[in-house]
């Protein structure tokens, strides 16, 4: 994750909104990425991003500079996404989602970056039956590619819990995809 200068952080703590705008512009994509992958809905993800940065601004005075600012923002974003997941059950996978998923798996260009709407379809196909914790751990580990130490800091879970949630999530996804016919090569 990218690091923010200590000077910017001090200015944010002092109430400098221009400095905070810089933080928003630089961290927005990372928070949006997490939100889309957790919530599988672009509008909900935008709302989650907004809520995250408002909460960050309101609590910036309490931020401990011993920890990375981006990890702290990620922690707030993860909690907001979990709360939103609890309050809305998310939309069911549709036929279009399955078609988009098929197209992505067969894409000859492996370097092509997915659009937000394509991510929504991928998550709905893969992760719709995961529990909230499994989804969070899977997203942070497999999709956001964070290391275990960062995941521990963000989720508050210990290494064993992360390992077991990740194992359960992967197993669930594989079984689901095999049922859909993706396991046969």
């Amino acid at each position: 994750m990218q690091q923010i200068d200590a000077d910017i952080i001090s200015r944010c703590k002092a109430g400098d909104k221009a400095a905070f705008r810089f933080v928003v512009e630089n961290c927005q994509q990372m928070v949006y990425s997490l939100a889309v992958k957790m919530l599988a809905d672009t509008e909900e993800a935008r709302d989650a991003v907004q809520d995250t940065f408002i909460k960050v601004w309101q609590n910036i005075a309490n931020y401990d500079e011993c920890y990375s600012l981006t990890t702290w923002i990620y922690t707030i974003a993860a909690r907001i996404c979990l709360d939103r997941l609890k309050s809305f059950s998310g939309r069911m996978q549709t036929t279009d989602d399955a078609e988009v998923f098929e197209r992505i798996t067969d894409d000859p260009d492996p370097e092509r970056r997915l659009l937000a709407s394509e991510w929504v379809s991928v998550i709905k196909v893969m992760a719709s039956e995961l529990s909230e914790k499994q989804r969070l751990v899977f997203t942070l580990s497999q999709l956001e590619d964070l290391d275990t130490a960062e995941i521990i800091e963000i989720t508050g879970l210990d290494a064993d819990q992360i390992k077991s949630n990740l194992y359960a999530a992967k197993k669930n996804i594989r079984e689901r995809l095999i049922k859909m016919g993706y396991g046969k090569d």
Binding site: M30, V36, V49, R113, W119, V122, Q142, L143, D145
Partner: peptide, 13 residues
């Protein structure tokens, strides 16, 4: 292959 492709990718806002 799909998991490897998706790892670390962030959608544009």
């Amino acid at each position: 292959d799909l998991m490897e492709r998706l790892k670390g990718q962030m959608p544009q806002v």
